[in-house]
Simulated scan of single mutants.
Amino acid sequence: MAKVNKRLAVLVGCNYPNTQYELHGCINDVVAMKDLLVKRFGFDPTNIELLTDASAVTGEGSSSVVLPTGENIKAALSKMVSQAEAGDVLYFHYSGHGTRIPKPAHIFGHDEAIVPCDFNLITDVDFRQLVNQLPKGASFTILSDSCHSGGLIDKEKEQIGPSTYRAASSLSYKAKNIPFESILEHLTTLTGINTSDIGTHLLESFGANASLKFLTPQLESELFDFLKADEGILLSGCQADETSADMNPMESGGKAYGSFSNAVQ
């Protein structure tokens, strides 16, 4: 009997409800994407893990019970990659805030990260490690509808140049970005430590569940000593220095959505 290749997906929507960073369309994005994966691309619903930070009815009529914390997102992604075999298709869709982390040794350098609901940042180094673990012949597509998402797989060759198209819109929208300074301020209130080193705050707050970038700084260079041709594909809502938009037409009776998520559905 011929082997049947698996199609696996992890979908994450963060609306950050009841905070100053609240978005409105991110959960809608991943619920709609789940429906699309099942109906158009033949994914088995049991092979799709949905994580949201609010009660959201999925296409199957159930509710998300797993919060999109940094630990939970990384656990779901690691589980998916560990199940992969040659020929399998893996898909990760993230809709939420992104941020940029300044590199102390580089005046103009930054690392890109997504912002889970608990602010336990998942960085480009974490995504690079996941892609490096992919078995030969499997593909891993990462779609990030967030600000600064263009560099989320560190050292990956950029395939798409900067956009030159700018469309005017009368809809209400919000950039899907939390500035680094705001994240640092939030984490400082949690730890009570007076330092501008974000790694110190993340390690104090999340311990071994913090990003690999801060757990073992030397790992970043070690990861790239063994770079190989991979099947990692990054679809980003914008370049690393640009922003993505959370569209909110609810005042006119519409449903909120992420611009990039909506464009690919």
Rank of each mutant, 00 (worst) to 15 (best):
H97W: 01
S62P: 02
E60L: 13
S95G: 15
A75S: 03
S78F: 01
G98Y: 15
V66I: 12
L67V: 08
T69C: 00
S64N: 12
S95V: 08
N47W: 00
F92Y: 03
L90I: 05
H97M: 00
V57R: 05
S62N: 13
S82N: 13
F41A: 08
Y94F: 13
D53L: 00
G70P: 09
A54P: 02
E85M: 14
I48G: 04
F92A: 14
P45S: 03
V81K: 06
S62H: 14
P45M: 04
L67S: 10
V65P: 00
K74I: 09
S62W: 03
R40W: 15
L51R: 07
Y91N: 09
Q83P: 08
E60T: 14
E49Q: 14
K79P: 03
D88T: 12
K79D: 11
R100T: 11
P102A: 10
T69P: 00
S64Q: 01
T69Q: 02
K74E: 11
A56V: 05
I101S: 09
E85W: 09
Q83H: 09
T46M: 04
D44Y: 06
G87P: 11
V57M: 08
S64T: 08
E85Y: 09
K74D: 13
I101Y: 04
S62D: 15
H93T: 00
P68M: 02
E60R: 15
S82H: 11
T46R: 06
S55A: 15
L50D: 06
P45T: 04
S82C: 10
S78V: 08
E49R: 07
H93K: 03
F92I: 14
